[in-house]
Amino acid sequence: MNEIVLKVENLSKNYQMGEVTVKALEDVSLDAVKGEFIVILGPSGSGKSTLLNIIGGMDTPTSGNVYFNDEHITNMSDKDLTLYRRNKIGFVFQFYNLMATLTAKENVELAAELCENAIDIDEVMESVGLGGRKDHFPSQMSGGEQQRVAIARAVAKNPQILLCDEPTGALDFETGIQILKVLKDVNEIYKNTVIVITHNASIAQMADKVIKMRSGKITDISINESPIPAERIEW
């Protein structure tokens, strides 16, 4: 039986902009199964980043619930949310957001130092294809390499869920494909759930589950019976 690691129920998030209330999320519900590769697809402003931030414990909803392995994270204190991010979640950002003054390896170690069951750094670096660039600083690396470091940093903590916010958004096609391949490899090697948000519909082809969003609502959730390898994606 498929083990549900993440359950989102009737999630809503409103922002107050002066006198206007903006509904960033409206009654969103979804499940994520252990080891699943999920792509959340939607145009800019559809609420996908807000959803990711709430799932990742970086933001709180206006209403609704998020459960992680039956733990109710929307009721958690700041301290518990920090521990949740530390031990259960890995983040990959569109603009990598590496620490400029740390080398590639040190960036990964920074995250690994935080948790008790971290994965061996060298192994993670190898798995993202950065074995030979460990001692380079971010400024000495290409965008693709920097994103690999960001993935290694997220994976090194051995998180149960890897949340990726437009991981290929700042990259060219070929580098983007390589990054997607790395994400899929990581997903297969470490058996963690990967959630990628993107506006690029082509990426959905490699997902096990595709969630489509528009104007803060989920418009469709579909299971992809035959996901294709990242190398075969084109856009």
């Binding site: 920090t82 620490m99 935080l114 903590k157």
Partner: peptide, 14 residues
């Protein structure tokens, strides 16, 4: 600011 956000996202406490 962004680095601090990343550190918080990684699980560092305030």
């Amino acid at each position: 600011r962004t680095s601090i956000g990343v550190l918080k996202a990684l699980g560092f406490t305030d």
